[in-house]
Amino acid sequence: MSRALRYTQQELQQHLARTYVVGTLRGPARRRFEHLMIELPELRQHVQRWQDHLQPLADAAPAETPDPSLWKAIETQIAPREQTAKSTSRPWGLPFLGRGLGVAALVLLGALATLLALRPTAPTAVDYVAVLEDSAGIPVAVATTKISTQLLKVSILRDPELADDADLELWAISKTDGETRSLGLLDRADSGERLLTAAETRLIKDALSLLITVEPEGGSPIGEPGGEVFSQGVCVRILGWQADEQSG
């Protein structure tokens, strides 16, 4: 009993993390721990370490084919539904919840298909893709970047209806330090292509997510987003589609 009193905070945290991963932490205690994990990065690190430690155990369980009807059930559950026009304000930074995408999804998928498909004359492989959503979770812009040519292409899927003296500005939110840095203004046209500087290319590679805001003409005067957010989305790395493309 007295042993317990000698535990440091760190030891306690590690102990809880181990029981969480192994599965002996259950019930209300487990839920409390999950809430704590949201707030304490050190807890998440302990948990991650233990998940890594025990992964060979997980891999050891012999595979068991699931019920053949299961995939259909999953497909049905995640299928896009028609969106109602109501926009629910959602805090930024929450993971995309995969709710119905509605009509915008068809436009989006078309845009993506065009961007990513093999074209007979000039195949285009992209390296980084971001799908940016508005506050209702509807995709309204797609940004793709090809690193070797430093080419950024942003397709705006829905007219932002800008005032004459306003501009759209693109920002990258860094994975490394969480800072938001400008990638410059966007063309008002439906889709603009632009050559990035070497520094801007590095911002894309380092980006956790991209952000588009509505700023005064010429861009935000303060060097950080000041205007209304038009859309935001995670930026992911997609390896080039063409096998014969030697990235150079």
């Binding site: 999953i74 995309f96 989006l108 993506l112 893709v129 799908v131 995709p139 989305g233 995670v234 997609i238």
Partner: peptide, 16 residues
């Protein structure tokens, strides 16, 4: 990892 990246941008074929 690649498939998860594509899932993040809602490519359902990647989930399949």
């Amino acid at each position: 990892g690649q498939l998860l990246a594509r899932c993040a941008i809602k490519d359902q074929a990647a989930l399949a």
